[in-house]
Design a protein around this nucleic acid. Structure first.
Length: 803
RNA sequence: GCCGAAGUGGCGGAAUGGUAGACGCAAGGGACUUAAAAUCCCUCGGAGGCGACUCCGUGCGGGUUCGAGUCCCGCCUUCGGCACCA
């Protein structure tokens, strides 16, 4: 065998596969379909990252395997190319974002091709292509027409550094997703998508999906459904203060009320409020606190009592004070709470600080209200609560809700943590929002025939300090005719967020060039839904929620034939630097895939990222360990040297081969890529130890390894005289009959401790096994002992209980 | 605070309740070589013993079981997610 030269053979096979068009997905093919999806990359200036390789290679392996298994496979690639980093980079280097994007895409294409991924390149999509975003805009119009896109003047997350409004999903932990600076609350007139209306559908839709449990749980927590009741507390100046509570059982323990600083009750009662100046000062201070400060100050509750207005407990008729307190959020529930300091830790802290009464209404084993609130809802019974007295908490909640509904004081209510999706960005490099403002007609959607509403070319597209979109300066674009009345009108100048284009790209792959629909319904029916989607955990409460929402909406309006877009979702662990830290330029621990391919070849790199560890867990890169994979590939490369069909039939080999087929096949399906590769290494070690391998055994190994290391396996396959490409062959099957060997080694335990191993025929009975042990090498262990009991698990283990 | 995952050699990591440490790296020894690289062979959790062997060992403390890394109870630690969510 000549020397292993990855550079040559990788280019060669990539060319051959492409010429043969082996990876093109065929619409309506008779074969069963498989749609494998990876999260399409953001084509950043930094180029492909080894993290991408780990994320993509799993679906690459599965896709190649599926083709051999006889599936018609759709494994596409595209570019999520709108967004701030490109725009920022373009500004820094003084180029147009379009140009930067095209350059970056070119780099990504060449890098991905070098890795040898079996994408169907004909179906590439680019979110910044007008032919693509025509349909992004179309979806927006459908949302708008059904009242699911609306404008609202309210407090929203805002990043002062990026000068942009952020959704809740983009500001998790109170910091900007992009730049990490703290997010502030800013009052703005903002576009929202009513994702909250889909909260139940998104939650209930999770059932039956094959998502990793942690993916499901994170989504459930993010959506955060809680069951409770809205209760009206009459206000002394008239009207009522409505609160949301999950603890209706504790209404008898209410000693004060709190409202969020933004709560309208203040304006409504301005005349009656005696300390307005104080309250205004408090509100102003609260407004200036950012999320970060609010979290830091969690323990330090503050508030101001509203003098002159009180609430009345609808059950006891007692008057309770109302406070403005910033631990109450306008964005959740009704922006007002009933405070039960005895049984809520936050209310407790507040009551302690402002010397408010604490009334215990639940009696539990270890209540010590001197130190903390008693919040256990599973233990404890009601006291001081009239008709609830003596009931366990859970029953009391149900009974109270029934009671207040009957009395007309309140109603049961479900609340969600998830907020509506803030949808517009004051930036240039995004999809224009297809809405026109007409003095006469108000907000008017651009007519669908006019789509795509193209992003105008701009020389100056820097974000402005006034918070206005750069597009607002393009007067001949902004000024337009009202699609409804034909009068003078102005265009919406904000653009959509980065997440828009990625919320439906998996649909476009199915029919990427369709100009009449986002995709042909028949093709959607054929290919959809995605069978297996792999991506990062960081997208679980971002992209994955958004895209499920859009797909579900499109399903509801009949544009898509399936309610849930992804049948199965897995997630790769982060690839860390060799120092165990997240790879980053500043730490200098970034591994460049190009350099790895130059040094070891793509097959070795691919093998290594799959072998590095548990696929779902973070793993540190190791320059040493990759050498192990290089050695393995080279050992495989040299196998033809010991290929020998004359060496004879070996039952042991056959069993090993079939065990390997079974293990590798199953492990690939379960993302156990590391153990699959280990099983192949074990086989190769065994074969070298025996000194020979048959041609058919080698062919089997090559096929099993092909999804991971396709180039080298094709080359060897050709070198041993095969005319058919592995890419065009079929996946090996194992035969259970070959898995079992005639003789098995049974571990022998005495009182649960391992003493040795006995070799017996596979079919041996317990008596035969016991005899073999008592008369064999291990018999000295039994001298002077009596065997009381024998536990024999056939073929597995035997344990003697002796005295 | 709440939710989730995990703690196994020097390292990455394997183990449907059934021989703990597969596979790989690193390390040590040897073969080949003028030498190096590459390759091949051996050793490789700890302690003891010349030795066949013995004892200890999967974060800690209990328990269930013939048998526990795996199951149960109680802790500790780390990581990830959410977070004044009422």
């Amino acid at each position: 065998m000549k020397e292993y030269s990855p550079k040559e053979i990788e280019a060669k096979w990539q060319r051959i596969w492409e010429e043969k068009g082996l990876f093109k997905a065929k619409d309506f093919d008779k074969k069963p379909k498989f749609y494998g999806l990876i999260e399409f990359p953001y084509p950043s200036g930094a180029g492909l990252h080894v993290g991408h390789i780990r994320a993509f290679t799993s679906m690459e392996v599965i896709s190649r395997k599926r083709r051999l298994q006889g599936y018609n496979v759709l494994f596409p690639i595209g570019w999520d190319a709108f967004g701030l980093p490109t725009e920022n980079y373009a500004m820094k280097t003084n180029q147009h974002p379009r140009k930067v994007t095209d350059q970056n895409i070119k780099t990504f294409v060449s890098q991905l091709k070098r890795v040898g991924y079996s994408f169907d390149w004909d179906r590439t999509v680019d979110t910044t292509d007008p032919a693509y975003y025509k349909w992004t805009q179309w979806i927006f119009l459908q949302l708008f027409k059904r009242g699911l896109a609306y404008r609202s003047n309210t407090y929203v997350n805002f990043c002062e550094n990026c000068k942009v409004v952020l959704s809740n999903e983009e500001s998790q932990g109170g910091v900007c997703d992009r730049c990490g600076s703290p997010v502030i609350q800013k009052q703005k007139d903002v576009w929202f998508l009513k994702i909250r209306d889909y909260a139940d559908k998104l939650l209930d839709g999770l059932e039956g999906l094959d998502f990793l449990p942690r993916v499901k749980t994170e989504q459930e927590n993010w959506i955060g459904r809680s069951y409770g009741a809205e209760v009206d507390f009459p206000v002394t100046t008239g009207g009522a203060l409505r609160v949301f509570t999950t603890r209706a059982d504790t209404i008898f323990g209410v000693t004060f009320m709190c409202i969020a600083p933004e709560h309208p009750l203040i304006e409504e009662n301005a005349a009656a409020i005696k300390n307005m100046a104080e309250i205004e000062a408090y509100r102003e201070a609260a407004r200036r606190k950012n999320e970060f400060e609010r979290v830091q100050l969690q323990k330090d509750k503050t508030g101001v009592r509203i003098e002159g207005v009180s609430a009345i407990n609808p059950l006891t008729g007692k008057e309770v004070p109302i406070f403005v307190a910033d631990y109450v959020m306008m964005g959740y529930g009704t922006g007002a709470i009933m405070a039960v300091p005895a049984h809520d830790t936050r209310d407790y802290d507040f009551a302690k600080k402002y010397n408010l009464p604490i009334i215990q209404v639940i009696d539990g084993g270890e209540v010590n209200l001197e130190e903390t609130a008693y919040t256990d809802i599973y233990n404890g019974t009601m006291i001081n609560s009239d008709f609830l007295n003596g009931l366990p908490v859970k029953e009391a909640i149900a009974k109270m809700i029934d009671y207040i509904e009957a009395k007309g004081i309140g109603t049961r209510k479900v609340n969600y943590n998830m907020k509506d999706w803030a949808f517009n960005r004051q930036r240039y490099w995004g999809e224009p929002i297809p809405i026109v403002y007409c003095d006469k007609c108000g907000m008017v959607p651009v007519s669908e025939e006019e789509l795509p509403l193209k992003l105008p070319d701009l020389e100056e597209y820097k974000p402005t300090d006034t918070g206005e979109s750069p597009l607002s300066k393009v007067t001949d674009w902004v000024n337009c005719k009202c699609p409804k009345c034909g009068g003078a009108a102005k265009r919406e100048t904000d653009t959509m967020p980065q997440w828009a284009g990625s919320s439906w790209y998996f649909l476009r792959y199915i029919d990427p060039k369709n100009n009449n629909a986002l995709a042909d319904p028949e093709k959607l029916k054929y290919w959809g839904p995605v069978d297996w989607y792999n991506g990062g955990m960081e997208h679980v409460t971002r992209h994955l929620i958004y895209s499920r929402f859009w797909n579900r909406f499109l399903y509801d309006i009949g544009a898509v034939p399936f309610a849930e877009p992804y049948k199965r979702r897995t997630a790769q662990g982060l690839l860390l630097g060799s120092d165990g830290n997240k790879m980053s330029k500043s730490l200098g621990n970034v591994v460049n895939p190009n350099e790895c391919i130059d040094k070891y070849g793509s097959d070795v790199l691919r093998t290594y990222v799959m072998f590095i560890g548990d696929y779902e867990r973070p793993a540190p890169w190791s320059d040493n360990s990759i050498i192990g994979c290089k050695r393995f590939i080279e050992r495989v490369w040299r196998l033809p040297e010991i290929m020998n069909d004359e060496a004879g039939y070996s039952k042991k080999h056959t069993a090993s081969v079939h065990r390997m087929i079974k293990k590798v096949s199953a492990d690939y399906e379960a993302t156990g890529f590391n153990t699959a590769i280990a099983a192949m290494m074990t086989f190769v070690n065994e074969v070298y130890a025996d000194g020979f391998i048959t041609k058919s055994e080698l062919e089997t190994l090559l096929k099993l390894l092909y999804p991971v290391a396709p180039h080298v396996t094709e080359e060897i396959n050709e070198a041993i005289g095969n005319k058919t490409l592995i890419a065009e062959s079929t996946w090996p099957e194992y035969d259970e009959n070959h898995l079992v060997e005639d003789e098995v080694s049974i571990p022998v335990q005495i009182l649960g401790k391992l003493k040795g191993v006995v070799k017996v025929a596979r079919t041996a009975s317990q008596e035969e096994v016991t005899d073999a042990i008592l008369n064999g090498d291990l018999k000295s262990y039994f001298e002077g002992k009596t065997v009381v009991k024998v536990i024999y698990v056939p073929g597995k283990i035997v344990n003697f209980i002796v005295k």
